[in-house]
Simulated scan of single mutants.
Amino acid sequence: MKRNDLRNIDLNLLVVFEALIQERNVTRAAQRLSLGQPAVSGALARLRTLFNDPLFKRIGHKMEPTTRALQVAQTLGPALDSICSVVSLTACNEKSR
């Protein structure tokens, strides 16, 4: 994928993915993000399409991540941290002008 192709992706989905991987529960992820459960379920459906993988399998009341979900999570955490750092630096630089 080229960086320009990112225009076609809702990057907010990645924040939802991170909440899902940490909570392993749609309802708790929704609460954590201050979203409704249907919104997170819809985001999960779009994530499944984006990654062409089920990402989570329901086992009892928990959602167990697939191998692909674990791979994504390992890379995504540092990437989101980097984005937060860049945005924070930009906000700090704007205030000092």
Rank of each mutant, 00 (worst) to 15 (best):
M1D: 03
M1K: 05
K2N: 08
K2A: 08
R3F: 14
R3N: 12
R3T: 12
N4S: 09
N4M: 03
N4Y: 08
N4W: 01
D5W: 01
D5C: 04
D5A: 09
L6M: 13
L6R: 06
L6P: 06
N8F: 15
N8G: 12
N8W: 08
I9Y: 07
I9F: 05
I9E: 07
D10S: 09
D10C: 09
D10A: 10
L11N: 05
L11P: 10
N12P: 00
N12G: 09
N12T: 02
L13K: 11
L13W: 04
L13T: 11
L14Q: 03
V16K: 08
V16F: 02
V16C: 01
F17C: 05
F17G: 01
E18Y: 08
E18K: 15
A19M: 01
L20V: 05
L20W: 01
Q22P: 00
Q22V: 01
E23G: 05
E23N: 12
E23Y: 02
N25I: 00
V26F: 03
T27K: 04
A29E: 02
A29R: 02
A30S: 03
A30H: 02
Q31E: 15
R32I: 01
L33S: 10
S34N: 15
S34P: 02
S34R: 15
L35P: 00
G36P: 00
P38A: 08
P38I: 04
V40S: 08
S41T: 11
S41H: 05
G42I: 02
G42A: 12
L44R: 03
A45N: 10
R46K: 15
R46W: 06
R46N: 06
L47N: 06
R48W: 09
R48G: 11
T49C: 02
T49Y: 00
T49K: 11
L50M: 08
L50K: 06
F51V: 12
F51N: 11
N52W: 05
N52L: 11
N52F: 07
N52P: 01
D53Y: 07
D53G: 12
P54Y: 02
F56I: 02
F56V: 03
K57E: 07
R58L: 06
I59Q: 05
I59L: 08
G60P: 04
H61V: 09
H61A: 12
K62I: 01
M63A: 05
E64L: 12
P65E: 03
T66P: 11
T66L: 07
R68M: 14
A69L: 11
Q71E: 13
Q71H: 13
Q71K: 14
V72R: 08
V72M: 13
Q74R: 14
T75Q: 11
T75Y: 11
T75W: 14
T75P: 03
T75M: 14
T75R: 15
T75C: 10
L76H: 13
G77P: 05
G77W: 09
G77R: 14
A79W: 06
L80W: 06
D81T: 07
D81I: 07
D81W: 00
S82A: 15
S82C: 10
I83W: 10
I83A: 15
V86I: 11
V87F: 08
V87Y: 09
S88T: 15
L89F: 09
A91E: 07
C92I: 03
C92D: 14
E94W: 12
S96C: 09
R97N: 14
